[in-house]
Design a protein around this nucleic acid. Structure first.
Lengths: 224, 224
DNA sequence: GAATGTGAAGGTTTTCACAGCA
DNA sequence: TGCTGTGAAAACCTTCACATTC
């Protein structure tokens, strides 16, 4: 979570869906995949809640925003619910993704299997380093970031992942926006500006370490 | 954010501090570092809020949980507030961190400069691959994960980052807990179990991409 | 005048509790 | 009986509004 907690950026039909709910859907999806592999046919809100460390009511409420997927007395059909989650999240299809900045973090993300598993296909790489441009990284040729706008359009990219240094992130993002991209995932530690119709999410990997640090120093009690 | 939104796992003195507040402190810290470099002496809650896309009241309320750092009519002293944030978050010191799983993601994390910048020193690496064990990765010798418990104690490690495959993550974490570690950051896509007195945070990098996917598919309105 | 610090109000999310159905 | 689906209540977080201070 890395953004504002109360940004109910979602609406499904008439209802407004909270960010927390959407994030929990991601978690349900992943857990349902595991349950499916374990061979389970159905799962109750109680079971699912236990795995996720949530309350059963929370699980039922989350799902109820999108429909009635369960059977009273029985629970939810695992495989079907998994497909429902995928459909709601929009990961029942392939997404054409480009990654900008094939450095330390960037090159790891290219090989990150969870992305591919959920339909996020990184099909284009960009960098500004002449030594990298033209070379092949895990089967993808690295393109020159100077042609970013043109190449993003040409490759019909739908989402962009930014993994460049903070100092240049805003320039890059401006070009990305110019190319008509409406969804950006940013790993650079910077507060970036985008127009209102562009979705920008920030991934800050230090944040959770800092949370742990805070917890240790202040000797916090865990919830539960 | 990847966990439960309402887990007020914090208490500072008597008050309970929400997860959201702690995450915002991380953001304030980072922004204050930038402001300091820009040469600013003071900053108002209004300015800080603008950079973070929050309300001024939110900023003041967050800070007020921990003390009175500002001057009425003037604002907050940048450098001092930065130090205050660091102190509250516990990042005004060095943390002895070990990383387990020097694979795709793991090796990128070793070189992630934001960690070092905030006092998280990765000083020990572990893997189970015989070809990696004993070799040197960015100045650190990779140790055998079979001696995990012993070596974590010996190196007086305080935090552990887990970047192993989901299938083995629980076994690893059990050993980590046995070694007395109380803070764990997990990158494996799995729901792991730890005792109540151990802080476990999960980093799920697909989550934000899924959020973007959801936003695009459902054509959501952005907040603000 | 300008901006903090903070109770109170307002809004959102979570949990409760129970009707309804297999 | 067992479990879902859901209004209502409770809990929580954010914003308002203003007294207070420099």
């Amino acid at each position: 979570m890395n953004s504002n907690t109360y940004s109910t950026v979602g609406s499904f039909g008439k209802k407004r869906i909270s960010e927390s709910t959407i994030h929990r859907l991601s978690r349900y999806y992943r857990t349902l995949s595991v349950l499916e592999k374990e061979g389970l046919q159905t799962v109750s809100s109680k079971d699912l809640a236990k795995r996720e460390k949530l309350t059963p009511a929370q699980v039922r409420k989350d799902l109820s925003f999108f429909g009635s997927f369960g059977t009273r007395g029985l629970g939810y059909p695992v495989t079907e619910l998994k497909h429902q989650m995928a459909s709601i999240l929009g990961i029942d299809r392939l997404w054409r993704v480009a990654l900008i900045g094939v450095g330390n973090i960037g090159s790891a993300l290219v090989g990150y299997k969870e992305f591919a598993r959920q339909g996020f296909n990184i099909i284009k790489l960009f960098d500004n380093d002449q030594r990298k441009i033209g070379s092949n990284h895990k089967g993808i040729t690295i393109s020159d970031v100077r042609n970013l706008e043109r190449d993003l359009k040409e490759a019909r990219i739908e989402m962009v992942i930014i993994a460049v240094p903070a100092t240049v992130a805003q320039y890059i993002i401006d070009d990305v926006v110019k190319a008509g991209i409406k969804a950006i995932l940013n790993f650079a530690p910077a507060n970036l500006k985008v127009p209102n119709d562009v979705f920008l999410r920030n991934e800050n990997m230090s944040m959770e370490l800092e949370y742990l640090s805070f917890a240790l120093v202040n000797n916090h009690a865990q919830k539960k």
